[in-house]
């Protein structure tokens, strides 16, 4: 955001003099504050005064969570209204949509179309819902300006199957990726390497994911700084990690600890290992011990007590 000289005047006298200073701010700063609100609250600011009547239509962010709405019908009407009334010339930077359970195909199409037509400036996309996966991915892959992507999607909420992570998702500017409930597919050599295309990746979160047709998950990135792995399936045994820029690594597991082969982890400073139900096997203890050898340079290590019992 460009710096704008604001009319601040003197302060610290009494409440009265400070009173109207925030509302004196230029529109772009107020829109910036409003972009941190959930969209229903942002729209409600239209009744504050005549200046604010149409302000919400120019917010660069949409935050829609179905749990805020009493019924799916209300959510559906709200989303349709917002998308049709929003100022079409205002760039959309962030779209965050979460709907627990299935979404009507018509509503999904409306949302994806809107994203598709605003994809030039879209930097951040959060999609958490169940619907046509093919449509969702073809839309996501059109958003070439994305720097941050968070996905938790499946065909239908009744189907607990993991969604196959597409190999051809090419988002050249992506720095932050957060995936939940995905399956990564291995290649001929029995190794899955799903993140190779993302050459600017800085932060990676993998939650409740699994690897299919492979024994090894390969994470190799020159740029990765933060890695967070939570509750991933223990069906694959090994993780190969090459990340010379990695600073912080969080690992939370439940029943099994992955065998991690780290190399080039010279920048790592902080490691958190959290686990609730490790089977206290000697094997796990050895794995944990080999981890600690890989992380020889760390400054801070947090290990939960149950993990230490192994």
């Amino acid at each position: 955001m460009a710096w704008i000289q604001t009319n601040m005047g003197r302060r610290r006298v009494d409440g009265d003099q400070n009173k109207d200073r925030l509302s004196d701010l230029p529109e772009c700063i107020i829109l910036h504050i409003l972009s941190f609100l959930r969209t229903p609250h942002a729209v409600q600011t239209c009744v504050l005064s005549t200046r604010w009547k149409h302000l919400w239509k120019r917010i660069p962010t949409l935050n829609l969570n179905s749990f805020q709405f009493r019924t799916l019908k209300i959510f559906s009407v709200f989303m349709s209204k917002v998308l049709s009334l929003r100022d079409p010339s205002t760039a959309l930077h962030t779209f965050n949509i979460s709907r627990r359970g299935d979404i009507e195909p018509r509503l999904l199409k409306k949302f994806l179309n809107y994203v598709y037509f605003h994809n030039i400036h879209l930097q951040e996309l959060v999609i958490s819902l169940h619907g046509d996966i093919g449509l969702i991915f073809s839309c996501v892959s059109s958003c070439r300006a994305l720097t941050s992507l968070k996905l938790s999607v499946g065909p239908t909420w009744r189907d607990p199957k993991k969604t196959l992570f597409p190999k051809s998702l090419n988002l050249p500017l992506l720095t932050s990726l957060d995936l939940e409930d995905f399956a990564f597919c291995g290649d001929e050599s029995g190794c899955a390497e799903p993140f190779l295309e993302f050459t600017k990746l800085n932060s990676l979160v993998i939650r409740s994911c699994k690897v299919i047709d492979a024994q090894i998950l390969n994470i190799s990135s020159e740029t990765l700084v933060n890695l967070d792995m939570q509750n991933n399936s223990s069906l694959f045994a090994k993780i190969k990690l090459y990340a010379p820029s990695l600073c912080a690594f969080n690992y939370a597991g439940s029943h099994h600890i992955h065998n991690i082969r780290g190399c080039g982890l010279s920048s790592i400073k902080q490691v958190n290992i959290e686990s609730v139900h490790f089977s206290a096997s000697q094997e796990d203890a050895l794995v944990l011990f080999s981890w600690l050898l890989d992380f020889a340079n760390i400054e801070s290590l947090t290990v939960t007590s149950t993990a230490l019992q192994v």
């Binding site: 925030l22 509302s23 600011t45 005064s49």
Partner: peptide
């Protein structure tokens, strides 16, 4: 968030001209 219209008007120092 979740505050009344009057509260938000006071917070921002907005005069209601409706």
């Amino acid at each position: 968030a979740n505050k009344s219209v009057e509260y938000v008007r006071r917070y921002f120092g907005i005069e209601n001209d409706f």
